[in-house]
Design a protein around this nucleic acid. Structure first.
Lengths: 226, 226
DNA sequence: CGCAAGAATTAGGCACGGCTAAATTAATGA
DNA sequence: TCATTAATTTAGCCGTGCCTAATTCTTGCG
């Protein structure tokens, strides 16, 4: 059995991660343009990377049609997502970073070292199942718990008690907004009023009542019914 | 006050670190060849990097004569050594790596992130003053404790009780040898016999007596008199 | 059905960081 | 002093990974 880690560059790994994310965990194919805009690159750069990844057997590239991960590519992409989320967890739980500060750093750390390093990190962190944004951390074999019962706050009935389990958008701006509103993972909420005018909702938590959330915010809040 | 972190590549940082190490912490100039052989590069590659670092004000390059760190370069180099040793400490104390396994990983981790990350890591580790090999960790301001009273085992008198505080060679091979002999930081020793023939010494510790160390080994062991 | 718009690819250029080979400088010793 | 040698630098090439501009597919609409 030979190692499957045939020296990948950070850029290669980032492309795999992008395809993974855009294809809904490797389900369907994604377009060159989509990858390019996700990574803030030009399409031509993506094309040449797709060619390279295709030669390495990580990606199936159908020119002019799109690209998808091979089985091998999917394993690699999952592993990188795992690494990313483990580092984010470490940064928040042990180095006292805030949840809106860790993405960039994890983006760099995820490319360092071997699988062994991350297995050890995982063990040190006591096998966390969710990262600081509520995203599930794939296990060693790439299995991802899928969050059944989770839904967007937008889809919740009035007066239904729910608690926040994640965010759909983990940009610093959105996370800081939530901090400012006193909303974090685990916070319990109920929708007290809905406004048809703009689909905004009024929510109450233990600490705050009459908090008005616009549609964008409520859509990006992932909750579970208690 | 503007930031002094004007985007440095890993390769640039590695060159600074090499100059720092070879120049005895930035004292004297070092030759292109010395840097090249230390980094396992060709001299011509080093020359072009020296030119770049010189333009960035990190290195003083006197063509055909040698190169030394500027004050700014010295600060940067010290910071990288600090990062390296902090990560080595983390890997050993929290991820259970052995002292002969951490160098390569730290070599990669040291280039990630900002000074802030490493200040937080330092705090998390509770401001360690020595890394797993006994090398001093520079503080935030670049101050290095110099290990007064430390000397090579070769220079110790017969029957003098000493303990191991560091190693001059931290290659995996040497560290594994020490592991095999049951020698580690803190181990107490006395030289029981000296052999003029090849400058080897016989030492005894609490756990082992009559252990024969050749000159290379005893030279690379740094000890303090109790 | 055919063509124009838009997506994607190809062609060609650039900076980085490495290399080899050629040219240059410094140092040494006869 | 001057020639030889060793160290160093310069010249020029290559792969990665990005870019712009030109070209080639696909597709949907008139």
């Amino acid at each position: 059995m030979f190692s499957s880690s045939a020296e990948r560059s950070s850029s290669e790994e980032n492309h795999l991660k992008a395809i993974y994310a855009l294809s809904d965990r490797g389900q369907r194919d994604v377009s060159t343009t989509a990858i390019a805009s996700h990574m803030e690159l030009k399409a031509s750069s993506v094309t040449s990377m797709l060619k390279r990844l295709s030669e390495k057997g990580l990606v199936e590239h159908r020119p002019y049609r799109g690209a998808g991960l091979t089985e091998h590519g999917l394993r690699v992409a999952t592993s990188i997502v795992r690494r990313h989320r483990l580092w984010e967890t470490f940064l928040v739980t042990h180095l006292n970073y805030k949840w809106d500060e860790v993405h960039e750093l994890a983006e760099q750390l995820e490319h360092v070292g071997t699988e062994d390093l991350h297995d050890r990190l995982d063990k040190f962190l006591d096998h966390p199942r969710f990262d600081p944004h509520g995203d599930p951390i794939p296990d060693k074999e790439g299995r991802v718990v899928d969050m059944e019962g989770a839904l967007s706050l937008t889809g919740v009935e009035k007066d239904q008690l729910v608690y926040i389990v994640g965010v759909r958008d983990s940009s610093p701006a959105f996370l800081k907004l939530l901090d400012g509103l006193g909303l974090k993972l685990g916070t319990q909420l109920t929708i007290t009023r809905r406004f048809e005018y703009d689909n905004s909702v009024e929510v109450s938590s233990r600490f705050r009542t009459g908090l008005l959330l616009n549609e964008q915010v409520s859509t990006n809040l992932i909750v579970k019914i208690i």
